[in-house]
Amino acid sequence: MFGFRISPSSAINLDNVSRDRFSELCRIEPDALRCMACGSCSATCPAAEFSGMSVRKVLLYLQRGKEEEAFKIMNNCMLCGKCTMVCPRGINTRHLLLTICRIYEKEDRR
């Protein structure tokens, strides 16, 4: 009506998603909270071309409980370490990604 429409809410419904895993991740890797979302990692990532990988996005998705989306883009990560080299916050992204692979689980396998 009048050229406006109501878009679906993008708020995170904590009834549906759990933040437990993200808290656990932050406990093991406090660096996860240091990310300032500058996007340097996205710019250098060689896997971005194939799966849209970006550490920044992975962290954002996980923070919002959108785990499947995070796993999808992480799928092509080659652990080359370029994101670690360029991170202005000095986050050890390689270890962060390995830890995510360790503590998170895919929904269907849970």
Binding site: F50, M74, N75, N76, L98, C101, R102, I103, K106
Partner: peptide
């Protein structure tokens, strides 16, 4: 010998 729940897969490339 470490166990990972998530494993990257490059078959889509």
């Amino acid at each position: 010998i470490r166990k990972y729940n998530l494993s990257p897969d490059y078959s889509n490339i």
